[in-house]
Design a protein around this nucleic acid. Structure first.
Length: 525
DNA sequence: TTCAGTATGAAGGTCAGA
DNA sequence: TCTGACCTTCATACTGAA
């Protein structure tokens, strides 16, 4: 492919012989740099590349001594370097500037290019939907609607705002609140919250995005920036049920006049699982469970715990080191006491109950026990989501048109149904056939009067298809989605790669689709 | 080949004490 | 304010039985 021997040697040294993908990526990047015009090459060689945290540029910041020498001669900012690099990749200066402004100067090149791609896709839809003549167009881009100010916030806002001069945004990292009660939860004292939603975020449609709160650093900054600078609301579902579930929600819903689902679910393990009370030792001080995940504790583990306790049967309490071991494992795997010296993982129907789903919601129809745990572990906590969505009840007394992305086992649908909000038309998208079957089955069992359309892949939802559904239904009132967290959650020991991870990168499809819906809605106003 | 069961840390937060 | 101990986490890869 025309790479120099030095370049190949450097790439192998940096990535190892086995990692062919990384080697190829490094070679392509190096090649792009080498083929840059002289002016840009000069800028690119600045050693401030080494400051690109998370950027693949790190890998070759010390590539060539010439680069290092030049670095001292001409100090250039990170932002300038990234601008130049993006321009070298073929993007316009406007696009590069907007991406850096919106994503932050410390965003990786991958994040910046994702942003630009998403914006380009959204602009392409404009072309399909009809261009309007009187709006200044960013260089190298096709038409952008002047009418559609909100939709093009990402490109327009940076022109209006006072330039931030690419200041260091390290201090702007979103912090998780303590207590994690968002803009308020039932029965918890909370100062009156006022929030101003950015103009670009205002509906229609309303949107509601969810993901794990404890994501790698910077992820929520990126999510918030893409979703029109709306401040995330971090809520732990332990304020709604007997199990913790720390999640971030970005939405443009009103936050006053919320109300909880009734009856209120039990808040402690003993209330939720009364049969465990009899066997629960005093030295296990848990009153609530940790996050309900996709895997459960093994039979071998519960057997080890039983044997460890049986060794001290004649004694009132086991020694402290045994207590510590047992409680540690119980916390880790959410084990509950089901007999003398006997702990066990939760049954799937118990998980359904804790998450606010109807009993047997995930049972039957060829679904294995393992799949039930997986689907449930990936779902919403219905009471929490319903509390946020409750403000829609008075707004849509005649029913709601819902676009549900990454809908899983239908947490949003169940929440709206339990709130008594009729589901007029629902387009539900989920890659898992198992999950689609669960939602379809629930839809039929609950005698829904509306229309359910289920799709497999969010990437199939293009402008044409969205336009078709919106014409058919008269638009969507609400766009809900919790994109995959696989690459964000701390439970993932192997591929916790952040928003650029194989699955979690689908967040950008949520943004793309939401932006398209806003665009089409504005056009048809 | 499929599928259920099992073993496998690290990142990033909280919190008490100096 | 800093430090260090402690706690929690929408999971993935491997193994063996069917």
């Amino acid at each position: 492919m025309g790479f120099s021997a030095k370049m190949v040697a450097k790439a192998i040294e940096d990535n190892g012989e086995e990692n062919t993908d990384s080697i190829l990526e490094t070679l392509l990047t190096l090649s792009a740099l080498e083929n840059s015009p002289p002016k840009q090459q000069h800028v690119d060689t600045d050693d401030s590349f080494s400051d690109y945290e998370g950027s693949f540029l790190d890998d070759f910041s010390d590539l060539d001594s010439d680069y290092e020498n030049e670095a001292t001669a001409k100090p250039v900012s990170d932002a300038d370097n990234k601008m130049t690099f993006l321009v070298d990749m073929g993007y316009s200066e406007d696009e590069a500037y907007a991406a850096i402004e919106r994503c932050g100067v410390h965003s990786s090149i991958a994040e910046l290019t994702d942003f630009i791609s998403a914006a380009q896709i959204s602009k392409a839809a404009d072309v399909l939907l009809g261009d309007l003549p009187d709006r200044p167009k960013p260089k190298n881009l096709n038409g952008c609607s002047k009418l559609n100010k909100r939709r093009h916030y990402d490109y327009d806002a940076w022109k209006k705002k006072k330039p931030r001069c690419f200041e260091d945004d390290e201090d702007e990292t979103i912090r998780l609140p303590n207590p994690m009660i968002g803009f308020g939860v039932p029965n918890e004292l909370c100062l009156t919250v006022h929030r101003k939603i950015p103009e670009a975020a205002m509906g229609p449609p309303y949107f509601y995005y969810e993901n794990v709160a404890l994501a790698p650093k910077g992820v929520w900054n990126t999510i918030s920036r893409f979703l029109y600078d709306v401040e995330p609301e971090f809520v732990d579902s332990k304020y709604f049920c007997a199990a913790a579930r720390k999640r971030g929600y970005v939405h443009n819903l009103p936050i006053h006049s919320r109300f909880p689902l009734l009856p209120l679910p039990p808040h402690t393990v003993h209330e939720a699982l009364p049969l465990t009370r009899k066997w629960w030792p005093s030295w296990d001080t848990r009153t609530q469970l940790n996050c309900l995940q996709t895997c459960i504790g093994s039979a071998r583990l519960t057997d080890r715990i039983r044997k460890a306790l049986e060794d001290y049967d004649g004694i009132r309490d086991p020694p402290l080191h045994v207590q510590k071991f047992v409680v540690e494992q119980c916390r880790k795997w959410n084990l509950v006491w089901v007999g003398k010296n006997k702990v066990a993982p939760l049954e799937p129907d118990e998980v359904e109950m804790l998450l606010g789903f109807p009993k047997n919601h995930t049972r039957g129809g060829g679904i294995s026990r393992t799949d039930r745990y997986k689907s449930l572990g990936n779902s919403f906590q219905v009471d929490t989501v319903a509390y946020h969505l409750s403000v829609l009840k008075d707004m849509f007394p005649g029913g709601i048109n819902l676009l549900s992305l990454f809908s899983g086992i239908g947490g949003a649908e169940v929440a709206l149904h339990r709130l008594g909000i009729p589901l007029k038309n629902v387009v539900s998208v989920d890659i898992s056939e198992v999950n689609r079957n669960i939602v379809r089955s629930w839809w039929e069992q609950t005698n829904q009067k509306g229309t359910l359309i289920d799709l497999a892949d969010v990437q199939e939802l293009d402008a044409d298809r969205l336009q078709y559904y919106m014409n058919l239904f008269g638009g969507f009132d609400l766009v809900v989605g919790g994109s995959p967290c696989n690459n964000l959650t701390g439970s993932n020991r192997y591929t916790r790669d952040g928003l650029e991870g194989k699955e979690s990168i689908l967040f950008y499809d949520y943004f793309r689709i939401l932006d398209l819906v806003k665009c089409i809605a504005t056009k048809t106003e």
